[in-house]
Nucleic acid binder design. Structure first.
Length: 952
RNA sequence: GCCCGGGUGGUGGAAUGGCAGACACGGCCGCCUUAAAAGCGGCUGCCGCAAGGCGUGCGGGUUCGAUCCCCGCCCCGGGCACCA
């Protein structure tokens, strides 16, 4: 032994160091895996276990939004929510519940496909390698998942059931009377039995096969439509409305998106608009997320009103149907506006201007047809961004035709203008400038009449008045309608009744929500279980032919185009595999040749139902066993929606994933496949961990970990750099990984740090140098129980002193409350408080050491298991009872009251906890006698157990 | 423009009508050490030598008492955006 070895020996041999943490953590991770510690028993089936300590216990289903396994691996921000749910799940297990917590992978996605296009590596190869890496990183964090239940959406065993759910949706229709989906066979039965009328009234038996199929297909919840869709040439695929940003670009890649009429698969989510909206009431979700869904669905209640038009050149009588939320303002409808692309425009435009048309209405054109064509051309050339920028400036052109206001009988001009959208309502409005800002602005530009039909409030100085008030100028006694004096609500009801009685319209509801565009021209997604026959009709494959496996291809790329080439057409990667596309099948009428659907499903498909597969991941006969679903997700009584007990993830999925998943779940509910009618009962949005990034004078990012702060400025060496705050990312050179933190301090320290840095729902900056505080905390806990020099126990069986015992029970009580409410940061603060108190004691009483270790276990499970063992326990603490406070010890013996005089603390008194109010009052007045200066107080308020306030 | 969420020490945050700043980082001082690191202990909102005063974005209000409730404004973050 030489002198050189001395420094190392100065660290006490049994100190809780990173090396010891690492050893403990890996050992316990192996033990948990070997013993299947976190397996949650199902009520029946292969995952049932009647011997399990929680078999038959009250259940709790805790769910994370499962990740897309990206090639970059995890940074410290990613596992925040996962650690949060893990701490909560571990606590709930100790509190007696049977907790289901699993982790899977949303593994179809664009990045692996784009990588494949660049390198030729199969997306499956990349994705599976990424999943393996994620699993290793997550395992290192000690997350207590039931690993038997892990699924990946790319596994054929999984997507077989994604395809199966698609078939359920395809083979269903929405019965708007019953307000639920029903099997398509029941619709066909109604048609053939004659209880339901065919669209054109002919008996079902007289329709050809093709006609029948067309009628049925019009009702399906998944259908092919030739409709305007979002075509993104830069990505080579179409996109859902939800995937297009407000300025008309793709959310992913930021490429321009164009409206094109293309044949695509759609999902009839609009049929569920009402229920998706109304059932939000049942959900325990953050209010802002509910609001975003409400806004996205955008239900408007109003009326459809029919306006007869002047007879067109062709001699047809045409009526224009408008949608309005303000039928009560119909007396003020002084013109109509159609969207430029509205179907009726061409039929209505006459060849020549009527007499006396103002020059400003004509767009400077010699005849209406030229005016319409000219306006359409200008409107089409505008990008969405330009439209927005110019949204204040109203443009339009008169089409040369007039309509009749059904209530006033007045001839009112018809315009086209781009402020009316083809895709909303009927694509036409009655313009009421008196009560609508946009109509007012348009009326001013074209000098159109403005009639107020609601008396503005006293002192109103604006233009259009949209508030409530009595109706004015709204009587047509000769037509049987008089609204004058009525409030808005009453006037609406009266008008709708009149419209319906006279056949001029009816009450109506419209939605902003559009049907969901469900096909993508990509490779790396679920193939559709659909083939086409020689007539081009779509035919669903029978269940026995599932899964339709994704074939191998040489070229993973869809054909992409110049991002600005709006006239290009999609071409799918699968369409190039002709030997896969052309297939011979016997679908009941002998072997025939069919062509496969070559689109694939969007990335959202797998995430629409994965939470159900966790419940019964090995089931080869059903997507989920009904009993397992009822146990884990079933309603908890009359009116309850059921669903997972907790769902944690980022707010960025507020509309997309959460709306689609709710929709699928409701279809499955209607068809009797699940007992819950909402998938996620409680939603919690975790915040994000963000980071500082630094740029030098050239704007290039410099390694964030090498930057130091000196007197308020930031330096890399001697060079001053500029600080930015935002995401963590490779290109920003500010990534910190959980792996680095585990190596430097251990997973337990990392977990404690992430949970202690703030409330789970709040975003906050990462600060590596602060992690040491959590490390010191765990070292103190360790030191309280293990002697650093000898490794011997410092725990004694002698009882704790009264003060320590009271502190313990107060902390236990607080910790329970905090854990139930997922306030992990304040829980940890309390545990630190207790630890700091114990640290000051010469020895650690067992009656404090054991509950401390148990309360620490959800956050630092490895070191807690290790200490639990050193405390003499032979089994894992996973199912040990979480400490309970003794209520008798929560009542303080004496209370210190601050005494305020005129709102300022001027003294303190200590009195027995059960002192009468008079006693407290007298003691308080005595304590502040000096401040009162001999005067009698005007008022004395004694807040029991809190404080005394004296008004001098 | 409209709708949400939020502004508290040098930093992350705590307290939701009752002693503002729990707990932690950082900083300062000390112990240990030849020294450094680690660890441990003390102090640390601001002004002031002190007594004391001031202090939760700004202005007002309710209250014995307001970070908390109400009204008006400013700033930051998010969502929606001609939706009839």
């Amino acid at each position: 032994m030489t002198e050189a070895a001395a420094p190392a020996s100065e660290i006490p041999p049994f100190r809780y160091t990173a090396a010891l943490a690492d050893e403990i953590e890996r050992r316990w991770q192996d033990t948990w895996e070997r013993e299947g510690t976190f397996h949650a028993p199902n009520p029946t089936g292969p995952l049932a276990d009647s011997e399990h300590p929680r078999a038959g216990a009250e259940k709790l289903y805790v769910l994370d939004m499962f990740p897309y396994p990206s090639g970059a691996g995890l940074h410290v921000g990613h596992p925040l929510g996962y650690i949060g749910t893990d701490c909560f799940a571990r606590y709930q297990r100790m509190a007696g519940r049977n907790v289901l917590h699993a982790m899977g992978f949303d593994a179809f996605g664009l990045p692996a496909e784009q990588y494949a296009v660049q390198t030729g590596t199969h997306p499956r190869t990349t994705t599976e390698a990424n999943i393996a890496r994620y699993k290793a990183q997550l395992r290192r964090l000690g997350l207590a998942h039931d690993e038997r239940r892990s699924v990946a959406t790319i596994d054929a065993d999984f997507y077989r059931w994604t395809q199966w759910v698609f078939l359920q949706i395809y083979n269903a229709w929405y019965d708007s009377e019953a307000k639920r989906a029903r099997p398509i066979a029941e619709l066909i039965a109604e048609f053939s039995g004659g209880s339901r009328r065919t669209p054109d009234g002919r008996p079902w038996g007289e329709l050809t096969d093709a006609e029948r199929r067309a009628v049925v297909d019009q009702h399906r919840l998944a259908y092919v439509s030739q409709a305007p869709v979002n075509w993104c040439p830069g990505l080579g695929t179409v996109l859902a409305n939800e995937e297009v940003t407000a300025d008309g670009r793709s959310e992913r890649g930021n490429f321009p998106v164009f409206k094109r009429n293309l044949k695509q698969w759609m999902m009839r989510i609009t049929a569920y608009g009402d229920r998706l909206l109304d059932d939000l009431e049942k959900l325990d979700w953050p209010e802002p997320i509910k609001l975003m869904q409400r806004n996205w669905i955008g239900r408007s209640i109003g009326a459809h009103i029919e306006f007869p038009t002047s007879v067109s050149d062709s001699g047809d009588e045409r009526r224009i149907s408008v949608f309005t939320t303000r039928p009560d303002t119909i007396f003020g409808a002084t013109y109509l506006v159609l969207a430029p692309e509205h179907d009726l425009v061409d039929a209505l435009v006459p060849t020549a201007w009527p007499a006396g048309v103002p020059q400003a209405w004509t767009g400077g054109q010699a005849n209406p047809r030229a005016a319409v064509a000219g306006y359409r051309k200008v409107a089409a050339a505008k990008t969405d961004l330009e439209r927005q920028a110019e949204s204040k400036e109203k443009t339009g052109v008169f089409i040369g035709a007039y309509a009749t206001n059904p209530v006033t009988g007045a001839q009112i001009p018809i315009f086209i203008a781009d402020y009316v959208l083809a895709g909303y309502g009927t694509g036409a409005i009655m313009a009421v400038p008196g009560q609508d800002e946009r109509d007012w602005a348009f009326a001013e530009v074209f000098d159109l009449p403005i009639v107020r039909t609601v008396q503005p409030a006293e002192g109103f100085a604006g233009t259009a008045y949209t508030g409530d008030g009595p109706a004015i100028n709204s009587a047509a006694p000769e037509r049987g309608l008089d609204l004058n004096g009525l409030g808005v609500a009453e006037a609406k009801a009266r008008t709708i009744a009149w419209l319906e009685a006279k056949g001029h319209g009816s009450g109506a509801v419209t939605y902003r929500l559009r049907d969901w565009l469900f096909s993508r021209q990509r490779y790396w997604g679920e193939p559709f279980p659909i083939v086409y026959d020689e007539t081009g009709a779509a035919i669903a494959l029978p269940e026995e032919l599932l899964p339709v496996e994704l074939p191998e291809v040489d070229d993973f790329s869809p054909r992409t185009f110049d991002p600005a080439d709006a006239e290009s057409n999609p071409e799918t990667p699968l369409s190039r595999r002709r030997d896969w596309v052309e297939v011979e099948l016997d679908l009941g009428d002998g072997p025939k040749r069919y062509t496969r659907e070559t689109n694939v499903m969007p990335q959202w498909a797998g995430s629409c139902w994965y939470e159900l597969r966790y419940l019964d991941p090995t089931n080869a006969d059903r997507f989920v066993d009904p009993e397992a679903e009822r146990y884990w997700m079933g309603p908890r009584g009359e009116g309850d929606c059921g669903g997972t007990d907790l769902y944690v993830g980022g707010a960025e999925h507020a509309v997309l994933h959460l709306l689609y998943a709710r929709f699928w779940h409701k279809v499955l509910y209607d068809l009797g496949h699940v007992s819950s009618f909402e998938p996620f009962r409680k939603l919690f949005n975790q915040g994000y961990i963000q980071a500082y990034a630094y740029t030098d004078a050239r704007g290039a990012y410099v390694p964030a970990e090498e930057v130091v702060e000196r007197s308020g400025a930031y330096y890399l060496g001697d060079v001053q750099v500029n600080r930015e705050y935002g995401k963590m990312g490779k290109s920003l050179r500010n990534v910190v990984t959980p792996d680095e933190m585990c190596a430097a301090y251990g997973a337990d320290t990392f977990r404690v740090y992430e949970m202690s840095m703030g409330p789970l729902e709040v975003s906050r900056p990462w600060e590596t140098r602060a992690v040491v505080g959590s490390f010191r905390f765990l070292q103190r806990v360790w030191r309280a129980i293990v002697d650093e020099r000898s490794g011997a126990s410092r725990v004694v069986d002698a009882p704790a002193d009264e003060a320590t015992r009271r502190l313990l029970h107060r902390i236990v009580d607080g910790v329970r409350g905090d854990m139930d409410a997922m306030r992990f940061n304040t829980t940890i603060a309390k545990l630190i408080e207790l630890t700091n108190a114990v640290t000051r004691l010469p020895q650690t009483p067992r009656e404090v050491a054991e509950p401390l270790v148990l309360m620490l276990a959800p956050f630092a499970p490895h070191v807690a298991e290790e200490l639990w063992r050193r405390l003499g326990h032979e089994t894992s603490l996973t199912y040990a009872d979480f400490p309970v406070a003794d209520p008798a010890l929560l009542v303080a013996e004496s209370v210190t009251y601050p005494v305020q005089v005129n709102g300022k603390v001027r003294g303190r008194i200590e009195v027995p906890a059960d002192a009468a109010e008079e006693t407290v009052r007298a003691a308080a007045l005595e304590a502040v006698a000096a401040a009162l200066g001999g005067k009698d107080p005007r008022k004395v308020i004694v807040v029991s157990g809190r404080m005394v306030s004296v008004v001098a």
